[in-house]
């Protein structure tokens, strides 16, 4: 199995133009094999950039990149469900299922199980494979020992190796709540924070990042120091989760490391500069608190 670099869906509420230009740049410049598009966090955001999706998908396909459409993570009403159903019905591209409704609609045809689905063991992974899953993106809180078990099934495995870790999703919008607004009249305040709104403890310690209804880690997950272990475990796809930093350079860094042109220490040093001072975390991979940073090879 060849190792592939992927770009996950943009999780934040970027302006439609910023969203489009980001993917154009990825299409034109980033050494990645597969790119995920679509609204995972809040269905209210999709209409803003929906018109650019065909253009972006074409440009990515023309650049020889696999295009995957990601479905919404928390589906609560019929309008949202209709969106998932429509996504599942299209035949141009693979779909990443992030809710069991999508898994249901997609059963019987090839699809990808996304990181918002609770795939914790071989029993569940095996069921998905029988239903047509060709790739499983691991949830964030997965340790090396679990990956080893899942790899025995022989399905493609994808793991996020860079970017804030999605930790929770809610019906409630915390961006709106922070401004004393209701979700129905949120004024899209989440658009003000390109990488999420910083949340710290009362004694000033940086902790989490709020992205509308989603809560992410403040630290960037970074598994660059574990790449050789992940390769040995049989992970085939390596996901970079988009941030408002130089993601082409981030992708180049991982590509260079995968191709043996950069060692883990050099890669992490370079990523540190690109991350502009945001700390790293790799605890989940080591079976510890997710926030921990105890890299193997740096």
């Amino acid at each position: 199995m060849t190792t592939q670099l992927t770009i996950g869906p943009v999780l934040f509420n970027w302006s439609a133009e910023r969203w489009r230009d980001f993917y154009f740049k990825i299409a034109d410049e980033a050494p990645v094999d597969s790119v995920y598009l679509g609204e995972v966090v809040c269905s209210k955001r999709l209409p803003f950039y929906a018109e650019y999706i065909p253009e972006v998908a074409e440009r990515l396909a023309a650049a020889d990149k696999e295009v995957v459409f990601s479905s919404l993570a928390l589906v609560m009403n019929n309008r949202e469900l209709a969106g998932v159903s429509e996504l599942a019905d299209q035949t141009d591209s693979l779909v990443e299922a992030n809710d069991l409704s999508a898994i249901s609609y997609l059963s019987g045809k090839p699809h990808i199980v996304g990181p918002y689905i609770s795939t914790y063991n071989e029993g569940t992974a095996g069921f998905f494979v029988e239903q047509g899953a060709k790739r499983i993106v691991l949830p964030p809180e997965i340790a090396a020992a679990t990956i080893a078990e899942l790899a025995k099934i022989g399905v493609e495995l994808e793991i996020q190796v860079f970017g804030r870790l999605p930790l929770a999703i809610s019906a409630r919008c915390y961006h709106a709540r922070s401004r004393n607004l209701h979700k129905d009249n949120c004024q899209f305040v989440c658009g003000e924070d390109l990488d999420g709104m910083e949340l710290s403890t009362v004694d000033g310690k940086e902790f989490l990042a709020v992205n509308g209804t989603q809560t992410l880690s403040h630290s960037y997950g970074n598994l660059a120091p574990e790449l050789s272990t992940l390769l040995e475990l049989g992970v085939s796809h390596y996901r970079l989760s988009p941030h408002a930093i130089d993601m082409v350079a981030v992708a180049q860094c991982f590509r260079d490391q995968l191709d043996g042109r950069l060692d883990a220490g050099e890669a992490t040093a370079r990523l540190s500069e690109l991350a502009l001072g945001v700390p790293f975390a790799d605890g989940f991979f080591h079976g510890q608190a997710g926030v921990d940073w105890t890299p193997a090879e740096v």
Binding site: A73, L74, Y116, S118, Y120, P139, P140, E141, L165, L167, A168, I169, S170, A171, R172, L208, T215, S217, G283, F284, G287, Q288, A289, G290, V291, D292
Partner: peptide
């Protein structure tokens, strides 16, 4: 729970122990 249950890793992010696992 204010987060969608079964899909929350906040506890394990801080303690390594989660409702799911």
């Amino acid at each position: 729970c204010v987060m969608a249950e079964g899909r929350c890793s906040l506890s394990s992010y801080v303690t390594g122990q989660s409702p799911n696992m």
